[in-house]
């Protein structure tokens, strides 16, 4: 589904990812770990097609990223559920409108879609905040909302960048359980986290593997938990 082959990314001469090779296939569950600045977010952005490599090849759903038009990249993103670390919302729209945004950009939003969004919002504990504007929410609430939005369209794969960073332990476990359930249905998950306790908690539940990044290099490429 996603293949990175000898990929290097540099910003202003500084190498952020160095010769990284990685593949995400159906059924995979990867934890991506490493210290801050190791390149975790950049690797996730490569996987979502939001970042082009300086060298190497990125393939999304079998197609080289370099040959994809902006429309084709948009189509690829519609097949993904993406949660970035800086949870991004349209601050002038109520939370519910933000959650249904993946449907909005595809066409008219019908009541069934809104019901789906309401269910997901209730599940992540935001049922009471449907009309709230994103700036009025806490960091944890925004993170849960971002996850609800990412899962709304039943994505073929999930890319999550520190999705539990602002959540309490209980909510973190709840979120992890949801991702594991999705994974059991065949949805591959790539989740960046520095929470080792969460990774340990996942061990009895899922056959996950760990990717460890340090200074832009993969030092541990897919070891089992």
């Amino acid at each position: 589904m996603i293949d990175l082959s000898q990929v290097t990314v540099a910003f202003g001469g500084r190498v952020v990812l160095d010769d990284v090779t990685f593949s995400l296939q159906p059924g995979d569950f990867f934890f991506l770990t490493g210290p801050s600045g190791a390149g975790k977010t950049t690797l996730l952005r490569l996987c979502s097609g939001a970042q082009a490599p300086a060298r190497g090849e990125v393939r999304l759903f079998g197609r080289p990223l370099a040959e994809m038009s902006s429309d084709t990249r948009a189509s690829a993103r519609r097949r993904m559920g993406i949660v970035y670390q800086d949870t991004q919302f349209l601050d002038h729209l109520p939370l519910e409108e933000n959650i249904v945004l993946p449907f909005t950009v595809r066409g008219p939003v019908d009541p069934e879609m809104r019901a789906q969004a309401a269910d997901l919002m209730a599940w992540v504990g935001l049922g009471e905040h449907r009309t709230a504007l994103p700036p009025t929410l806490s960091g944890g609430e925004r993170q849960r909302a971002a996850l609800a939005r990412a899962l709304l369209t039943a994505p073929e794969l999930v890319l999550a960048d520190e999705p539990t960073g602002n959540l309490d332990w209980e909510m973190s476990l709840k979120l992890l359980t949801l991702l594991i359930e999705l994974n059991r249905l065949g949805t591959p998950v790539l989740m960046a986290t520095h929470d080792l306790a969460l990774i340990r908690a996942a061990k009895p539940l899922v056959n996950a593997r760990v990717l460890r990044l340090k200074d832009g290099k993969l030092t541990q490429a897919g070891a089992a938990l």
Partner: peptide, 9 residues
């Protein structure tokens, strides 16, 4: 945000 959720240009 719009690109993140798959909006076309």
């Amino acid at each position: 945000v719009l690109r993140l959720v798959g909006a076309r240009d």
